[in-house]
Nucleic acid binder design. Sequence first.
DNA 1: CATTAGACTTGCAGCCATCGAC
DNA 2: GTCGATGGCTGCAAGTCTAATG
Length: 659
Amino acid sequence: MSDSEDDMPLAQRGGGAVPVGALQNNILPLPRALPDPRSAPTLTAMPLPGVRQAAVVAAAKMRPPEKAAKKAVPVAPKPAKRKAADDDGKAGKAKKQRTIEPRSAAKAKPKKEGAVEDKSLKWNLLEHSGVLFPPEYTPHGVKMLYDGRLVDLTPEQEEVATMFAVMKATDYMQKPKFLSNFWAGFREVLGPKHVVKCLDKADFTPIYDWFMAEREKKKTLPKEEKERMKKEKEAAEAKYKFALVDGRKEQVGNFRVEPPGLFRGRGEHPKMGMIKRRIFPRDITINIGEGAPLPEHPYVGQDWREVRHDKTVTWLAFWKDPISEKDYKYVWLAANSQFKSESDLQKYEKARKLKLHIDKIREDYERAWESGRVQERQMGVALYFIDKLALRAGHEKDDDEADTVGCCNLKVENVECLANNHIKFDFLGKDSIRYENEVAVKPRVWELVKQFCRGDKKGDKAAGDQLFDTMDANDLNKRLKELMDGLSVKVFRTYNASIVLDQLLHKESASETVDEKKGDYDRANKEVAILCNHQRAVPKGHSGQMEKLEARLLELQGELDTLSVDYLAAQRAKNSAKAETLWRKVEKKKEQIAKVELNARAKEDLKMVALGTSKINYLDPRITIAWCKAREVPLEKVFNKSLLSKFFWAMDAPPDFRF
DNA sequence: CATTAGACTTGCAGCCATCGAC
DNA sequence: GTCGATGGCTGCAAGTCTAATG
């Protein structure tokens, strides 16, 4: 369907990205492999395995959400307030759980049959070493130029100048916004009376050159020196790498505090170029078990901003994002932790649950197209797009963020009604990645979109106006909750990505070798990536590499020709021994050519497609694992080391697992 | 009931170590 | 053994979504 028109087009997922429809047969063949949850070890009973916890044990701790999610809802009329233990103490906020506990327990998560522990609690014991701060700034003394003259800078000023100098070769230098934001920040650091009066006459080249030279120097360091430094670094980091959670040794994801620098927003971010200041202990809130030793830090005389013992959250530390006061930076455990893998499983189970409701939901939103109320119609169409095209929700954004959209905040200029019930989408989505797609839609949808673009009654809509002006992402999510417990927009993306993979992998295939099967897998993966519009920048040097491949092909072709001629000659000369040898060589050469051709095609094909994101975030690993088992493909062919580790919880999926 | 705070997931790019071709 | 392409890993930006708040 959509294989021919690669290249320019992007999310060109043709019309039928979601031909889901059937599959009722394999209704929830639940993760049979997971050990019976009822026999799960008690919370803290587990030993303290090293880094790698046994998958079985880990899996056992996670009940297959099936039974929990299913009927449990009406249960739990009993407020879960009993263990009001850890409360008191700490600062004002943090203490939300208690008051609202009954409510959330009653409606949302009535897990735990026997109710051994409160579901809102994520841990009982938590120990860790906090965060690792970046080194303090060491002045290099290299002077920048202003109007051709050397300029004296204080270490603080020099640090900021260096942040800028280092970015000399990036295309941020071409962005006026970046330059003006930087100048505003730099000017403040320079103070009012400084000789440097504007950016135009400032020349940071000396600092840039120094920086590049340093980098070179580091590269050419003797091997032993390099290794010594590496060892030192590792030793310094060692204690931060792990946390102790209820007796489990878990990897910490990001324990390094972000170093100061210039903010590199994506797309046309209004704040690009602003100075991201240094973060100190006084900025950081630590979350840790009550009895655990307080993490140390190198800043004498300074205290952590706050120390909490909040068992309802999974973060170890956070600070306010210095660029955007309303954002936070968190330190969490790594992807292979119990916290992360458990929610990963929940995510996929929720998506599988959607499968049971999807027919009804689709009927529902199609019916909404005929509603007398605009808002109904808009919700119906929005959900149709989300379901069909796997669009993101699209929440409202502030003016101090890049101007990007998702489904619910599409603007009228982002859609165009073409002939033949086609609609063309063209907008900047997350990370300012362009989504460009022409799709066939139901005639009624086409009509409605035309109508929404025009605006219903008074005042026609103009560019910049919301396509769905009577609803937003929150409204839609509220509606979804009525259709299925816990349902939200993003679940559709997970659902569609995973079900498409499941279906594609269950298509007939003549592939025999592992490489061929891997090809099947990658193609399926690619379909999903295209559906989700997971793009990447064309790798630099791509065209050069393609040319090389072309040249190589030509060369090989030449060799093949020569061999062929020789072979014919040998044959004519009745030299059968020689002919046979040559024949073999000809065959081999052909194979070689085919391989290079295949490689070239794949490379061209995937130059703009990123396969990784869907693998990491959208594709239920059990689909892949089951497929590997059934088709006898080593899992390592499709999952790298970190994926294998991240998905340890899914390893027992049976060969006949269906999403 | 709308807005915001807070927590957690998703996403791309760039660096860097490794791997495979010569 | 060298060299450059590949792909993994890290960094951190940018989404989503729910509960708390006023």
